[in-house]
Design a protein around this nucleic acid. Structure first.
Length: 119
DNA sequence: GAGGTGACTGCGA
DNA sequence: CTCGCAGCCACCT
């Protein structure tokens, strides 16, 4: 019964997340809360994380490695696949990771509401 | 069809 | 300062 609720005219909240995440410039990272808040609900940060999980099935795949938690920690590195894959990707972009944590996090932090990539 | 989980965050004691 | 709880919404069993 009514199982086909897939993309019934309403692009999943996830799609919005993917769009934002894909807008993240290289060498920059953002947080779940920032995305969730940008979408309108700062409490739906969980959904953002869930969207990342589904991002692996999405194409093109979103740079989930650029999405970290409010502490700048690679909370989802375990889900990414290889435990160190996420870190390597970030390091490859010039982001320094230490103890699974983003160094100078506020410096590399990119807010979706601030499309100005100044600095 | 209903229940439980989840890559989070912010506030309260 | 540290620990705990409630809120949010979609996907999975």
């Amino acid at each position: 019964m009514k199982k086909e609720r897939k993309a019934s005219g309403k692009n999943s909240f996830f799609q919005s997340v993917y769009e934002v995440v894909r807008q993240i410039p290289e060498g920059r990272v953002t947080t779940y809360g920032a995305i969730a808040r940008f979408l309108g609900s700062g409490k739906s940060a969980r959904m953002v994380g869930w969207a990342m999980n589904a991002s692996f099935t999405e194409i093109p795949p979103v740079p989930a490695q650029r999405v970290v938690n409010a502490a700048g920690v690679l909370s989802g590195k375990f889900h990414f696949g290889p435990t160190d894959e996420m870190q390597k990707l970030l390091e490859a972009e010039g982001i320094r990771i230490e103890n699974d944590e983003v160094v100078d996090f506020p410096q590399v932090f990119w807010d979706p509401a601030v499309l100005l990539d100044e600095l």
